[in-house]
Amino acid sequence: MSTIRQLTAADLPALLRTQAACYGAGFNEPEAVFAQRLQQSPQSAWCVDDAARPGELAAYLLGYPSRIGQITALHGSFEPVAQPDCLYLHDLAVSPTCQGQALGLRLVQHAWGQATQLWGLRRSALVAVQGSLPFWQRLGYEVLELREPEHLSLLAAYGAEARYCVRQPA
């Protein structure tokens, strides 16, 4: 079974290749954005190496401690908050060649455990995109309707089907 490990700056070229294989062009974020995110919250970025393709990532997940209702702008920086109340999961990608191995589930479960251990956070939030809402709902996330114009504008940048979701502690 593949091991989950911390994502590092050395992984960024492989991360960008995985991202390109998983997302449409409008969702591909540049290397500089990922580098900045790793600097802002290095302890909340994880990956799994692709055992069949050395130097490639099977999957990755980036997040950061945040507050319910706060959305990271597409292509934007992670915004640190003084008193986080959740782990915001910004980007989960599983290489098309590695799907069906439950890597996404494993990364998310790992993130939940780390959030509790490192920051005492038991809630999680995210923006579901590109038809991923059923996956997140199976993991216990529920759509939270946002009302603030700023939040709605940020959400709209992710596309018409994007939904802000929250998972409460079990």
Rank of each mutant, 00 (worst) to 15 (best):
108 V>G: 12
86 C>E: 08
101 Q>I: 08
131 G>D: 00
75 H>K: 11
154 L>I: 12
150 E>M: 03
92 L>M: 10
81 V>T: 11
107 L>Y: 00
75 H>D: 10
78 F>G: 01
141 Y>M: 03
107 L>H: 01
112 W>G: 01
40 Q>C: 15
38 L>N: 13
69 G>D: 07
98 C>N: 01
154 L>R: 14
118 L>C: 01
80 P>C: 05
94 V>S: 05
124 S>N: 07
34 F>S: 07
101 Q>H: 12
81 V>R: 04
151 H>Q: 15
123 R>I: 03
83 Q>G: 03
65 P>W: 03
49 D>Y: 04
93 A>I: 06
47 C>R: 04
58 A>Q: 04
83 Q>E: 14
37 R>N: 13
35 A>H: 04
136 W>M: 06
148 E>H: 15
39 Q>G: 05
52 A>G: 03
94 V>G: 02
153 S>Q: 13
122 R>I: 05
115 A>H: 06
113 G>I: 03
125 A>Q: 00
83 Q>P: 02
67 R>V: 14
74 L>P: 03
64 Y>P: 02
68 I>M: 03
30 P>A: 11
109 Q>D: 08
72 T>S: 13
127 V>T: 14
72 T>L: 09
117 Q>T: 12
40 Q>K: 10
142 E>G: 12
66 S>R: 02
84 P>T: 07
38 L>G: 12
140 G>C: 02
118 L>S: 08
72 T>A: 14
146 L>G: 02
38 L>F: 11
105 L>S: 08
139 L>C: 07
135 F>E: 01
97 T>P: 00
153 S>I: 10
49 D>R: 12
142 E>W: 05
33 V>F: 05
99 Q>W: 05
62 L>Q: 13
151 H>A: 15
105 L>D: 07
58 A>I: 09
145 E>L: 14
116 T>Q: 15
43 Q>G: 11
77 S>K: 13
154 L>M: 09
128 A>E: 01
55 G>K: 10
139 L>Q: 14
145 E>V: 12
126 L>M: 14
61 L>N: 10
75 H>P: 07
40 Q>D: 15
54 P>K: 04
114 Q>Y: 07
44 S>K: 09
146 L>T: 12
67 R>Q: 15
105 L>A: 07
75 H>Y: 12
137 Q>R: 15
153 S>A: 15
93 A>H: 02
154 L>A: 15
30 P>I: 05
49 D>T: 13
106 R>T: 03
110 H>E: 13
75 H>R: 10
92 L>K: 06
74 L>C: 04
32 A>L: 04
125 A>K: 02
58 A>V: 08
121 L>I: 13
123 R>L: 02
119 W>D: 15
61 L>R: 07
63 G>L: 08
39 Q>W: 01
122 R>S: 13
134 P>W: 01
53 R>T: 13
38 L>E: 10
152 L>G: 11
151 H>E: 15
74 L>A: 07
131 G>A: 00
95 S>W: 01
83 Q>I: 08
63 G>M: 02
64 Y>D: 06
115 A>S: 07
73 A>T: 14
42 P>Y: 05
88 Y>D: 11
121 L>W: 09
46 W>P: 02
89 L>Y: 04
90 H>F: 09
142 E>H: 11
108 V>R: 06
106 R>V: 00
149 P>H: 02
138 R>T: 04
147 R>E: 14
152 L>C: 09
132 S>V: 10
63 G>N: 03
79 E>Y: 04
47 C>F: 00
45 A>E: 09
85 D>V: 11
38 L>D: 11
65 P>K: 05
